[in-house]
Computed example of a mutant assay.
Amino acid sequence: MTVDSARKHPVFPPFTEWVDAFALMGGWDGKSPLPGIRVEEVVEDDAFIVHAELPGLDPARDIDVMIEHGVLRIHAERHRDQREPQRTEFRYGALARDIRLPQGAQDDSITASYDAGMLTVRVPIEPLTKQLRHVQIEHR
């Protein structure tokens, strides 16, 4: 019998699972530099799109999306059920994630949707003109 056939589960979880768990613990209060909400950012021709993993939440009650000074803030809160679990690995409480919007973002036209635990925020982007412009110099 070889060692590989005898061991069905690794002794320690993969390093990436340790990093993910540490990041979620540190970012849960929304004040830590480590993220509490996992996001994916996508840039299309005319939009900046953010996908945020927020499973098991009620978007009308538990999720808030805000824009201030060119920063998109996603705030969420997970509440405990009325029943007490015997054992849980779920995290309860508030979490937040700030994402700087790209130049040209039209923050008055942002839309958000929630489906199957995924929050999608779509930020329209105005194309930037890259024209050379000379600045007049005043002489006294």
Score class of each variant (00 low, 15 high):
Leu119Trp: 03
Gly117Trp: 04
Asp62Cys: 07
Pro124Asn: 03
Asp64Arg: 15
Arg91Pro: 02
Leu119Met: 01
Thr129Met: 13
Glu84Gln: 15
Ile49Tyr: 03
Val43Met: 12
Asp4Met: 09
Met1Gly: 14
Ala112Lys: 09
Arg140Tyr: 08
Val19Gln: 14
Ala116Ile: 08
Pro14Leu: 05
Ala60Thr: 06
Pro35Cys: 05
Ser32Gln: 05
Ser113Gly: 14
Arg80Ala: 11
Asp64Gly: 08
Gly93Met: 05
Phe15Val: 14
Met1Pro: 07
Ala23Phe: 07
Lys8Gln: 14
Pro13Asn: 11
Ser109Gly: 04
His139Arg: 13
Gly56Arg: 00
Arg38Phe: 06
Ile74Gly: 03
Arg133Glu: 15
Leu54Asn: 05
Val39Thr: 14
Pro55Ala: 01
Met1Ser: 13
Glu126Asp: 11
Pro127Leu: 07
Pro124Met: 03
Ser5Asp: 10
Thr120Asn: 02
Gly26Lys: 09
Ile63Arg: 00
Leu72Trp: 06
Asp98Trp: 02
Ala47Asp: 14
Pro102Thr: 02
Phe12Met: 15
Glu41Met: 13
Asp108Glu: 15
Arg7Asp: 06
Leu119Ser: 01
Arg97His: 05
Lys31Tyr: 08
Ile137Thr: 10
Gln106Trp: 00
Ala6Ile: 10
Ser113Trp: 02
Asp20Leu: 13
Pro102Cys: 01
Ala96Glu: 05
Ile67His: 06
Trp18Ser: 11
Pro127Cys: 05
Ala116Phe: 07
Arg38Tyr: 02
Val42His: 11
Arg122Glu: 11
Ile110Ser: 00
Arg7Glu: 10
Arg73Gly: 01
Ile67Lys: 02
Glu44Arg: 14
Asp107Tyr: 06
Gly27Gln: 06
Ala23Leu: 12
Pro102Ile: 03
Ser32Trp: 03
Arg73His: 06
Asp62Trp: 02
Leu95Gly: 03
Asp64Val: 06
Ile74Lys: 04
His9Cys: 07
Arg61Lys: 13
Thr16Val: 14
Leu34Lys: 05
Pro124Arg: 01
Glu89Gly: 09
Glu77Thr: 13
His75Phe: 11
Ser113Ala: 13
Tyr114Val: 09
Arg87Thr: 13
His75Ile: 10
Pro102Ala: 06
Leu54Ala: 01
Lys8Glu: 14
Ile74Asn: 07
Trp28Asn: 11
Arg83Ile: 13
His69Glu: 15
Phe48Ala: 05
Pro33Gln: 10
Trp28Ala: 14
Arg122Lys: 09
Val19Ser: 12
Glu138Asp: 15
Glu89Pro: 00
Glu126Ser: 08
Leu119Gln: 01
Ala23Tyr: 05
Gly117Phe: 04
Gln106Val: 12
Leu24Tyr: 10
Met1Asp: 14
Glu138Ala: 11
Pro127Gly: 07
Thr120Met: 09
Ala6Arg: 10
Glu41Thr: 10
Thr2Val: 08
Asp81Gly: 09
Trp18Cys: 06
Ala21Trp: 11
Val71Ser: 04
Ala60Cys: 03
His69Pro: 00
Arg73Thr: 15
Gly104Cys: 08
Asp98Met: 03
Arg80His: 07
Pro35Lys: 03
Ala21Met: 12
His75Thr: 08
Arg61Glu: 14
Arg97Glu: 12
Leu54Lys: 00
Val11Arg: 07
His75Cys: 11
